[in-house]
Design a protein around this nucleic acid. Structure first.
Lengths: 211, 211, 211, 211
DNA sequence: GATGAATGAGATTTCATTCAT
DNA sequence: TATGAATGAAATCTCATTCAT
């Protein structure tokens, strides 16, 4: 039994090493430009070996994305728990997500990549599934939050909990995705300052959820 | 002088014909699976000729995206003008966008493809630039709208016009992008009905903007 | 009738202009690298127009080759007539050919190109034919020369006139062709000085022909 | 250490197999008409694989040329060694070369192709270099021959050994090149019989070298 | 497991030549 | 006649993925 486990652990370590290497390569120029060849070289393995640990290039990127998601969710959890008031929690959540995007832009891109592209692993939207798994434990946290908010009369009672949580996430993620594409051109094209836009955006969302 | 123009027009027509052909091929199986060969055949042109009009496959897809954007903007314009009340206008906008997505899912994907991917044509984010151009004429329409809304006391006066317009667009587009990816799994995974989610989403947004 | 002629003359002039342009382009980088496009541009004509005057790229090069051949034959004729003694004539011929090669290396290449490649214009070895034509008048000159040489007892009497002339030409041309390819590497590879080689070569040939 | 070698040998074998296939295709219709596609098919390999072993079509042809050269040199060596007398040796050499051209016209063309065209592989005249390499071992054989000839008083003592060898080769190769182009038209145009010409040519050369 | 070699399937490029006006 | 546009036919390149050892 122990052998099995060791094998398992070693396999996991290898996957992790490959993922490390992939991060270096992919973060350098984006997923499109990253060559499996280069990742292999960075990992000091042959291309073929990568395929023993991952089915394809996208799956490697997905591993990276999962790392990012983990970081993101941890940050968010910490942020929510750091304040007590509902409104503050939500605001904290919003700000933390932006912070995540700015602190780990590459992870952010990875996470969003799988959220904004229909990637099929062997016909199933695995991305969604695994992602769902990892969200699971946070989901309840959120639902509790919203419920409490409703009871306290801070959150509009018409809102369905699950719906609201999902909407908040989707909305924010989608917004940030487009934002990150446009970002650099915002000032030049629309004479808009990032900070102003962000603050106003937070306002908009809070206004929508909070009474 | 007229010759120059005619030439220009013919060139434009050719590009348009190629784009027609490309739509058929690309919409059938997506950009990834579409072969330049097939597009050429559909256009009854040689591959080499395509490359006289477009630098690469992606540029063809971008031409499609621009068409989609045009349709989208026209639909939105019409929608906004068809009702008088501010709140109704915004709601109409939201619904129209959803309608665009459902009526022209392929155009929608094309538009979003370039909005959620940093595509570089020869180093420049042409997509963004051209896209901006085509938005130009609608921007004022929107700004007027928001201004009037503020005067009428319907829209929160704290909001900056341009910011608000952009936020609304980005938010909605981003949301729809993610939504379209998750869509099919919504019910299965979260026991959520599309319609409910959409309606609640609209509420959320209106609540954010409208007093 | 005059119109016909003028037309003819104009056509000839055009061909000549194109040939001028072609020389500039082809001499710059060789026939392989020369693009019809570039020749056309140099001639300030469109590509398609070139094809009104020449059947294909090679034919243009052939026109150049014919120019070269003319220069070459003139040089040789002059050289032969400039001295009286048979042996001197032949030596003069050999030296002149070398001189032609060094003075007009590009023309030399053009001439040799059609002599060392089986070029077929519409199935016939036109090159050979036209070339033959232009040699015609020199041929007799040579044959006379050899005959006289034989009578004077300077040239070995076993030799057939036509054969000898042809052999001399072929031998020399072929030799020079290879020589011009190897030339630059001669010293480096075999520690051989050009001049020595040439002189010895001349000796070799004279020895073969002259008693 | 053995692994390195085996790899090397296998690589060489592959190159050789490809060269085999290329011979079939190229010899059938000439280098110009030969398609890489067809060579690949003949080799039962994919086009991409060919490009792992050769940079381009010409390089494949060069490999063929090198084979031809080897055959040629072997034939010549054997020919020279098969007779004892110097004059006979040289005559044997001349005849053997003609025999090579007639027995392996395709190899002959390949060899001449690179001898009468300045082919540049990535800027270097590799052809010349590799070709030189393979001549190396024969060079001394020749030099000995000439030296002995001079001692025996059969070969003109004025002649420098290396020069003479080179001259003989270049002269003959160049001659044969042109001869092979003109060959078919010889009788028609000049009423000359091949055999006569050849014999006279041999005479000419011998006369030049031999006392 | 690990890997070097091979592959498949297209994209892109290249150009001499031809077509339509 | 002249030409801009188009074509055909390959060559070459690109790379994720697979095969054979």
């Amino acid at each position: 039994m122990g052998i099995q486990e060791r094998k398992e652990r070693e396999k996991e370590r290898r996957r992790s090493e490959i993922t490390d290497a992939a991060e270096i390569i992919i973060f350098a120029n984006g997923i499109e430009k990253a060559k499996v060849e280069d990742i292999a070289e960075q990992a000091e393995l042959s291309k073929a070996t990568l395929y023993l640990y991952f089915h394809n290039k996208e799956e490697i990127y997905f591993a990276i994305s999962m790392r990012g998601q983990k970081i993101m969710l941890d940050m968010v959890e910490k942020a929510i728990l750091s304040v007590t008031e509902i409104r503050a929690k939500i605001l904290s959540f919003l700000k933390t997500m932006v912070q995540f995007k700015e602190t780990y832009p590459d992870y952010f891109n990875a996470v969003l990549y799988f959220l904004t592209n229909k990637i099929q692993f062997e016909g199933k939207n695995v991305a969604l599934h695994e992602s769902r798994m990892s969200h699971e434990k946070y989901l309840n946290l959120w639902i509790d939050l919203i419920q409490k908010g409703k009871q306290e009369g801070v959150i509009r009672t018409e809102l369905n909990e699950v719906n609201t949580v999902l909407l908040l996430w989707m909305q924010l993620m989608g917004f940030l995705r487009i934002y990150s594409v446009i970002e650099e051109n915002l000032n030049e094209m629309f004479h808009i300052k990032k900070e102003n836009m962000m603050n106003e955006y937070f306002e908009l969302i809070l206004q929508g959820v909070v009474k």
